[in-house]
């Protein structure tokens, strides 16, 4: 497969996942904003979310005041924000168009329909579209594309590159959301374990569509340790870090087998997985959740770099 084709597939998936992340951020933010104001008001919480998406400064320059409508514009409709839903879906679709023949009609249809509907939405008056409509719409289309990929694509190398795009982006965004919550969202340490804290934790779970799953799995009181375990180490959590790392190594191993060659990408992913298998929740909390997540994000990005060097750049 052409390196560039693999690259287009990989980025198609990353952008689809990124669109979903933007929608989830929007959802988290709006729920937090429904809380009675904390001392600093909810401005801080919005800013924290923007920081998780890596666009706080750009937002401040372009919009100034972080009120809900501006945030909506920024995270959903803004073409200048590279992580917004419209930017992500536009780029996902463009990557798909370039490698149209590597996709099935069903995948292309799902992708193209999302794009065409999105352009419709951009033309409609904003007041007619509530925030929940926007986030639901994004989740639905992202699921349609994902479903078409799972149901119709040949399980060849292209499939592996798509999946790598999905899981790398997902590992990155889950880690960032968790980090924001823990490190930035809480104004100060005295809130840890308080009612506010729990509300925020639950909101986070809800944004990842995981609040029920969490209660089935853990029950009882919501604690930071339980949530960290759930999102980081539990092998059953769909957006959890460990399953992402497992999927990463799985798809890279498939590539190594199909191509009959191991590259630095497999080695980097393997090393990351070994560390994830060995670590305990107590170990993470001892290291500091923020420190752990920062390192994790850097390592995932390192795997991405190796994937690029080994397969996508074509400069072997």
């Amino acid at each position: 497969m052409l390196s560039r084709t693999a690259e287009n597939l990989y980025w198609l998936a990353r952008y689809m996942e990124r669109a979903e992340t933007a929608a989830r951020l929007l959802d988290v933010g709006s729920r937090i904003a429904m809380l009675p104001n904390s001392e600093q008001g909810y401005r801080n919480e919005w800013e924290a979310l923007l920081r998780a998406g890596g666009s706080a400064d750009a937002f401040a320059r372009r919009y100034g005041d972080p009120v809900q409508r501006n945030i909506e514009s920024h995270l959903f409709f803004d073409h200048e924000n590279p992580s917004s839903v419209v930017s992500s879906i536009t780029r996902a679709r463009e990557n798909g168009r370039i490698v149209r023949t590597a996709l099935t009609t069903q995948v292309w249809d799902a992708l193209n329909t999302a794009f065409q509907e999105m352009r419709e939405m951009e033309r409609r008056p904003r007041s007619a579209q509530s925030l929940s409509v926007l986030t639901d719409w994004t989740m639905r289309h992202s699921a349609l594309v994902r479903g078409a990929i799972d149901a119709t694509l040949l399980r060849n190398d292209g499939w592996d590159f798509l999946n790598l795009g999905y899981v790398l982006e997902r590992a990155d965004s889950t880690a960032r959301l968790l980090d924001v919550k823990y490190y930035v969202l809480l104004p100060n340490l005295s809130f840890v374990g308080s009612g506010l804290d729990n509300y925020q934790w639950r909101t986070l779970l809800r944004a990842m569509s995981l609040h029920r799953a969490f209660h089935w799995a853990y029950g009882g009181e919501v604690t930071a340790a339980k949530i960290a375990d759930f999102l980081i180490l539990n092998p059953q959590t769909p957006r959890g870090l460990r399953p992402c790392v497992q999927a990463m190594t799985h798809h890279l191993d498939r590539l190594a087998q199909a191509y009959g060659a191991v590259t630095p990408a497999q080695e980097a992913a393997q090393a990351l997985r070994d560390r994830m298998e060995a670590v305990t929740i107590q170990g993470i909390l001892d290291e500091g959740l923020h420190e752990f997540l920062t390192r994790f994000i850097r390592e995932v990005s390192g795997v991405g770099q190796k994937i690029h060097e080994s397969y996508l750049g074509g400069d072997l």
């Binding site: 497969m1 052409l2 390196s3 560039r4 693999a6 190398d157 590159f161 590539l255 191509y259 060659a261 397969y311 996508l312 750049g313 074509g314 400069d315 072997l316």
Partner: peptide
């Protein structure tokens, strides 16, 4: 040569 995922 063309750049492919399996080398040139």
């Amino acid at each position: 040569y063309m750049r492919t995922t399996q080398g040139p």
